[in-house]
Computed example of a mutant assay.
Amino acid sequence: MDSSEIKQLQILAAKSRMGAILGTYHAKSGHPGGSLSAADIFTYLYFKEMNVDPKNPDMQDRDRFVLSKGHCCPALYATLALKGFFEWDELTKLRHVGAMLQGHPDMKGTPGIDMSTGSLGQGISAACGMALAAKLDNKSYRTYTVLGDGEVEEGQVWEAAMFAAHNKLDNLVVIVDQNGLQIDGTVEEVAGIEPLDKKFESFGFEVIKIDGHDFNQIESALEKAKTVKGKPTAILAKTVKGKGVSFMENQVGWHGTAPNKEQYEQATAELQAEIDRLEGNC
């Protein structure tokens, strides 16, 4: 990618973060921290990587995406809105009774959502099923899933990993958002998962380690994944929880806390300043 493309992705990611803050503020609940850490990944997937069509969200040959850490949907919703799946104003109705956008993804109610998720550990299993279906049907679409590093403590994740390797699902890409924090503290303190790369390798995965906020590294990892044959790929993306909002970064308390009015205004001002800086340099 050239510098102009990278800047456009950075602008979209900042807007995605803005949408996550907007949604959780209006909901008075939600999970901003992990939404902000994954925003760059969502942005690259939907604006560069995946074959999807907002005008035809159910097209048969679309690439599939499963947000296994479903509570971090505010940034995914913002990315879908930016892509054109629904109006931006829907974000202000997040978690409201009867609204399209609920606290966890709902495939029956939200355009662009391929799997309803929420119970941690289960999304990767659904993604394995989608990838296997593509193999059985001789389809070319690929399946991507994003997990949290706290979520990787779940046993079902490793059952799914065994399944993926056993079935040689080289059309499956598992991305772990390694922001190092979960609801009860640091991942290392709660149930250390390292060495995560060696664990995925021992389960039969091709493993790629990246900076999850560097679009060049995200691109390189996903391009490499397309060349891997006979086994699935795990991308371990090192990220910052609360990325892009100074007072939220690396603070475990922002795992599941919505901003108040003052915090919302400060967060929005910081993100808008970043958008203005990037747009001024385009």
Rank of each mutant, 00 (worst) to 15 (best):
D2M: 06
D2N: 15
D2F: 08
S3F: 09
S4A: 15
K7S: 12
L9M: 01
Q10S: 14
A13P: 04
S16V: 15
G19Q: 07
I21K: 01
L22E: 15
G23N: 08
H26D: 10
G30T: 04
G33N: 05
L36R: 04
A38S: 14
D40N: 12
Y46T: 08
F47K: 02
K48V: 13
K48E: 15
E49G: 07
N56S: 15
D58I: 13
R64Y: 10
L76T: 01
T79N: 04
L80A: 05
L82P: 00
F85Y: 15
E90S: 12
L91R: 01
T92S: 15
T92L: 13
K93V: 11
M100V: 11
G103D: 02
P105M: 04
M107Y: 10
M107I: 10
G109M: 10
P111V: 12
G112P: 03
G123C: 05
I124A: 01
A126L: 09
C128F: 05
C128L: 06
M130N: 01
L136N: 09
D149Y: 01
E151S: 03
E153P: 00
E153S: 15
G155Y: 05
A160K: 03
A161E: 04
F163N: 07
L172H: 03
V174S: 06
Q178V: 14
G180W: 02
L181P: 06
I183S: 10
D184F: 11
G185D: 05
E188V: 13
E189D: 13
E189K: 11
V190Y: 07
A191W: 07
I193L: 13
E194V: 08
D197N: 12
K199G: 10
F200V: 02
E206S: 14
I208R: 03
G212S: 06
N216G: 14
I218N: 03
E219A: 14
K224T: 15
A225Q: 02
T227F: 08
K229L: 14
T233W: 05
A237W: 03
A237Q: 06
V240W: 03
G242L: 08
G242A: 09
W254I: 05
H255I: 06
A258P: 04
N260H: 09
E262G: 08
E265T: 13
Q266G: 06
T268A: 12
T268E: 12
E270A: 12
D276L: 11
E279Y: 08
E279R: 12
C282Y: 06
